[in-house]
Design a binder for these strands. Structure first.
Length: 572
RNA sequence: GGCGCGGUAGCUCAGUUGGUUAGAGCGCUCGACUCAUAAUCGAGAGGUCGGGAGUUCAAGUCUCCCCCACGCCA
C-alpha cells in the first residue's frame, strides 16, 4: 500500500469557478484520488480556498460585508458546490486559517534566517482618503498615450499600452474617487529566487517523466531574459497573514501582510493540519505527510493545476521549501492542464462567459459533467466545450452505451428469469474470449489511471462498456432463450456480473451512477477486479437484484438549444 | 515587436526515440438484431497530416521560410 498525497490548485475565494477551472485541477485530482483509494492506497487529498488579497477585500466591500465574513460565506458556497460535484477532498481548507498564519510566518522566518529574504524600499501610490496604498489596477486616469479617460494604472484598456500609475494624467482612486494621491516609499520583502535558481534548475531537469507542459513553462521562467527574478512577497494591505519572522515581530514591516502567492501554496500543508487538528490528533498526524524527518519519506506527492499556476508550483513554492532548509516534502509529480475553451472563445470569470459550477449543477447531475469534462480534458492542448459535443458525448456514452446496457440486461432478466441471478448453463468460448479481452482492457485502464492519462483512461473505460454490448449482441440471449434457456441463463448471469464490474471500474469517473449500479445489484462488494473470471462469478445464481431507474436520461435537443441560448451571453 | 503553444477526416481529438496501406469517438451511408433509454452490433465512405523548400533510403514526426489562430510578455 502506498501513501498518496494529492493537492489541487486552490481556487480564489472571490466568486464561483467555471467549468474550465474545474477540469483544470479539482476534477482530475479527484479522479486520481478516487482511483488510488479504490486500489487500496492511503490517500490524503487536499484543497482549499485562496482567500487573501485585494480582490477579496473589494468584493467584500461591494457586498457590504466585512472581509472575514465575506470569505466565510464564500468558502461555504464553494464547499457546497464541491460536494455537489462529488469532489472527495479529505479537507477543503481556508488559506486564512490560524494554521496557515503560523506556517507562513514560520517559512518566512526560516527564509530570512538562511539569507533568502531581501528588504527593498519601493515607491507606491498612496491614497490618504482610502488610508492605504493602491494596487496599480485600482488607480485610473487619463491615458497619456491615447487620451482615454478610464485607463487603469497597469494598462490602458483602450489602446492596450502598458502603464505605470504615475504615467496617468489626473489619476484617481477607483475605490473612493479620491484625487489626492501621492507617491510614498514603502518597504517590502523579496524572496531571493535568483539565489535558488541553480538548485531549482537542477531539480526541474531531474524530472524526466513530467508533462512537457509543466517543464517547458518552468524552464522558460528559469532561463527567459535575465533568468528567474526575485519576487515581492509582502503587500501593504490589511487582509492577509501579518508579516512576522516566525513568532517574532519583523521590525519595519508593521501593518503589512504576506502576498497571496506566498501563503497560498503553504495552505496545502496548513489544510492538512486543519484536518488533523479538527480530528483532535497531534502534530505527528499531519507531519507524517509533510516532514521527511517525521514519517513522510515514503509519501508520493502529486499536484494538479492549470497551466497558469505552473510557475508558482515549479519555482516559487519549491523555492520557499528549499530555502527553508528544512526537510519538507517536495512535490514528486506535477500534472498540468491546458485551457478549456467555451464555444469558440475563452471561459471568462470577469466577463461571466461560459458555464459556472453552480449553474452546471442546476442543469444536470454531477456525473454528466464529470464524464464529459474528464473524457475531453485539455491534456495535450487547449480543448473546446460546445453544447453539441456535450450533448452528443453524454447521450452516447452514458445513456446509450452504459445506461442502456444496465437497462437491457436487468429488464431482460426480470422478464425471463425474475429478479435474481439465473442458474443453469455453462460458460463457453465466447465467455472466455470476453474475459480475456476485458482483462487486457482493465490492465490498460489501470495503467492509464496510474499515469494520470485522463482521456486515455476514459477511452479505455468506454471501450470496456462497449465490450458488454458487443457480447450481448454476439450471444443474443433473447434468441437463445427460445431454444436453449440454460444458455440464455448463463449469458444473463455473466451480464449481471458485468454491471457490478462497470460499477467498480467507473466509480472514479461517475461516483453517483456507480453507487446506483452497485445498489441495484444488491451488493456492497466493490473490491477492485484482480482476476476477472473470479470477479465475474461474485454474484452467484439466486442472488437477488433489482431493475434500477434509468441511470442517465438523455439531453433533448430542446434542452440543449435552451441552454445554448441561456449561456450565449454573460452571466446574469 | 519578442517569446510560447498549436494548425491531422464534417466535429472533438490521438499519433512514442522519423520507418510497412495516417488512427479513435461522434456525425454520415449501408447492413444485422429486436432484450433495451428509437437503444445495440457490424461494415463502409471520408484526410496530398496549414503552405513551400530542404536533410534522409524513408518525414505528420527533423531543419529553414511563410500563412493562420490562440496565449504570455515588453
Amino acid at each position: 500500500m502506498d501513501r498518496i498525497l494529492i493537492t489541487s490548485a486552490i481556487p480564489y475565494i472571490n466568486g464561483i469557478k467555471h467549468l474550465g477551472n474545474l477540469v483544470g485541477s479539482q476534477l482530475p485530482a479527484d479522479l486520481f484520488a478516487r482511483y488510488m483509494r479504490c486500489r487500496g492506497h492511503e490517500v490524503m487529498f487536499i484543497c482549499a480556498t485562496d482567500e487573501h488579497g485585494t480582490p477579496a477585500e473589494l468584493a467584500a466591500a461591494k457586498a457590504g460585508k466585512q472581509v472575514e465574513e465575506f470569505c466565510t460565506e464564500m468558502h461555504e458556497v464553494q464547499a457546497e458546490i464541491a460536494k455537489g460535484f462529488r469532489l472527495s477532498f479529505d479537507n477543503f481548507g481556508r488559506s486564512s486559517s490560524p494554521q496557515n498564519h503560523v506556517l507562513t510566518q514560520h517559512f518566512a522566518g526560516k527564509l530570512a534566517e538562511n539569507g533568502f529574504i531581501r528588504e527593498v524600499v519601493e515607491e507606491q501610490v498612496y491614497s490618504p482618503t482610502d488610508g492605504r496604498f493602491l494596487p496599480d489596477r485600482y488607480i485610473e486616469g487619463t491615458c497619456p498615450n491615447c487620451g482615454y479617460d478610464s485607463a487603469r494604472g497597469d494598462q490602458c484598456d483602450n489602446c492596450t499600452k502598458q502603464l505605470d500609475p504615475t504615467d496617468l494624467i489626473n489619476p484617481y482612486s477607483t475605490e473612493s474617487g479620491a484625487t489626492d494621491l501621492e507617491v510614498r516609499e514603502t518597504k517590502h520583502l523579496h524572496l531571493r529566487q535568483s539565489a535558488l535558481k541553480d538548485d531549482l534548475d537542477a531539480w526541474i531537469n531531474s524530472k524526466h517523466d513530467w508533462p512537457v507542459l509543466t517543464t517547458s513553462i518552468a524552464k522558460k521562467w528559469l532561463h527567459d531574459g535575465d533568468g528567474l527574478q526575485d519576487r515581492g512577497i509582502t503587500r501593504d494591505l490589511d487582509w492577509g497573514v501579518p508579516v512576522k519572522k516566525g513568532t517574532e515581530d519583523w521590525p519595519g514591516m508593521e501593518g503589512k501582510v504576506f502576498y497571496v502567492w506566498f501563503d497560498a501554496p503553504i495552505e496545502y500543508i496548513a489544510a492538512t493540519k486543519e484536518l488533523t487538528d479538527a480530528n483532535g490528533e497531534d502534530d505527528a498526524a499531519w507531519k507524517r505527510w509533510w516532514r521527511l524527518d517525521e514519517g513522510a519519506e515514503d509519501v508520493k506527492y502529486f499536484q494538479f493545476m492549470g497551466k497558469d499556476n505552473v510557475p508558482f508550483h515549479t519555482l516559487s513554492f519549491p523555492a520557499t521549501i528549499k530555502g527553508s532548509g528544512e526537510p519538507w516534502k517536495l512535490v514528486d509529480y506535477i500534472k498540468s492542464f491546458n485551457y478549456l475553451n467555451y464555444d469558440g472563445g475563452q471561459f471568462s470569470t470577469s466577463r461571466g462567459r461560459g458555464v459556472f459550477m453552480d449553474q452546471a449543477l442546476e442543469l444536470l447531475p454531477a456525473d454528466y459533467w464529470r464524464w464529459w469534462l474528464l473524457s475531453n480534458a485539455p491534456e495535450s492542448s487547449d480543448s473546446e466545450f460546445t453544447w453539441e459535443n456535450f450533448q452528443a458525448g453524454v447521450n452516447k456514452d452514458l445513456a446509450d452505451v452504459l445506461g442502456n446496457f444496465v437497462s437491457r440486461v436487468t429488464k431482460f432478466c426480470r422478464s425471463k428469469f425474475g429478479e435474481e441471478v439465473p442458474a443453469g448453463g455453462e460458460y463457453t468460448a465466447e465467455e472466455a474470449e470476453l474475459i480475456a479481452s476485458l482483462t487486457t482492457r482493465i490492465r490498460a485502464y489501470e495503467g492509464h489511471m496510474s499515469a494520470m492519462e485522463v482521456r486515455k483512461s476514459a477511452q479505455e473505460l468506454r471501450a470496456i462498456w462497449v465490450a458488454g454490448n458487443e457480447y450481448l449482441q454476439t450471444t443474443a440471449p433473447w434468441s437463445a432463450f427460445k431454444t436453449d434457456p440454460d444458455r440464455a441463463a448463463a449469458i444473463t448471469r455473466l451480464s449481471l456480473n458485468l454491471i457490478r464490474l462497470y460499477s467498480v471500474l467507473s466509480a472514479p469517473f461517475i461516483p453517483d451512477a456507480s453507487a446506483k449500479m452497485l445498489a441495484a445489484m444488491k451488493t456492497e462488494n466493490a473490491d477492485w477486479p484482480g482476476d476477472v473470471a473470479e470477479f465475474l462469478a461474485a454474484l452467484p445464481a439466486g442472488h437477488a437484484f433489482e431493475v434500477p431507474e434509468v441511470l442517465f436520461a438523455k439531453i433533448s435537443d430542446e434542452d440543449r438549444e435552451a441552454w445554448q441560448e441561456r449561456f450565449a451571453g454573460t452571466r446574469d
